[in-house]
């Protein structure tokens, strides 16, 4: 079984081989379900000119916002980047290239990348700026846009539980982009809340099969909340 033990004990080992210029996928939706320690490790490594693929760009001072702070990103592929003032500044000054991608198209591009599908036709974005310069085709009288798959040198994902073999289970809405990214990374590193022995996770309820995961590390998570909304505050919206 030793060959299938994917647990690493340090963040240095977890991101060993991650260098400047690489393409890195980072799981999460907003700050929900992000690999907090792995992002901090990228800051520590000081790698530059990264292409980051993530639904959002974090917030000022947390999540992927940290990479922006240290000017480590060259290109960002995301669907929504609204919560980050520094992002805005870097985008306007041209220091950061941004490829805005519809959320469902982004998810499917990553899914396709991990599944060996180079491109697919989607109805999303037909007739809009998103479709400019892309091949279109009609199926059953409806127009579709050709979108190409995405893969990465490293995928950094966050899971709730892992076994030592890299099988992953996510909790609630932290799943989001993590499973597709796990499959689309040449090296996938999972930062998790709890690591258990093989057999302790019910095989019927594994979300990400261990074949997609190369390294597992036990993390600690702040789990910062972006929009703290409580029942009593509903009428204020």
């Amino acid at each position: 079984m030793a060959g299938f033990n994917k647990v690493v004990s340090t963040y240095d080992e977890a991101l060993n081989g991650l260098t400047s210029g690489m393409t890195v996928m980072v799981g999460g939706f907003g700050l929900c379900g992000i690999p907090e320690g792995l992002i901090q490790q990228m800051v520590k490594l000081g790698v530059k000119d990264l292409t980051c693929i993530s639904n959002n760009a974090g917030v000022d001072g947390f999540g992927l916002g940290l990479l922006l702070e240290h000017r480590q990103m060259r290109t960002m592929i995301a669907s929504y980047v609204g919560e980050n003032a520094l992002f805005e500044q870097l985008f306007i000054s041209g220091e950061l290239e941004v490829k805005l991608t519809p959320q469902g198209t982004l998810a499917e591009k990553i899914r396709a990348g991990g599944a060996g599908i180079p491109a697919f036709f989607t109805p999303t974005g037909y007739g809009t700026m998103v479709a400019e310069g892309k091949e279109t085709r009609e199926y059953n009288g409806k127009p579709y846009v050709l979108e190409e798959a995405l893969t990465a040198d490293f995928s950094l994902v966050k899971a709730w539980k892992a076994d030592t073999m890299g099988n992953l289970i996510y909790r609630r809405t932290t799943m989001n982009f993590n499973p597709m990214m796990a499959a689309a990374g040449r090296i996938t590193v999972a930062e998790v809340e709890e690591i258990v022995e093989p057999g302790e996770l019910d095989p019927d309820f594994i979300h990400t099969p261990g074949i997609y995961v190369q390294r597992v590390i036990q993390g600690t998570f702040e789990k910062r909340i972006e929009q703290r909304t409580l029942l009593s505050s509903t009428s204020a919206s």
Partner: peptide, 18 residues
């Protein structure tokens, strides 16, 4: 929306609200 007791950072909507 949750209460102080039931709020969970792992459970948000598409507007990133708990």
């Amino acid at each position: 929306f949750p209460t102080e007791k039931t709020i969970d950072p792992d459970l948000i909507n598409a507007g990133k609200q708990t």
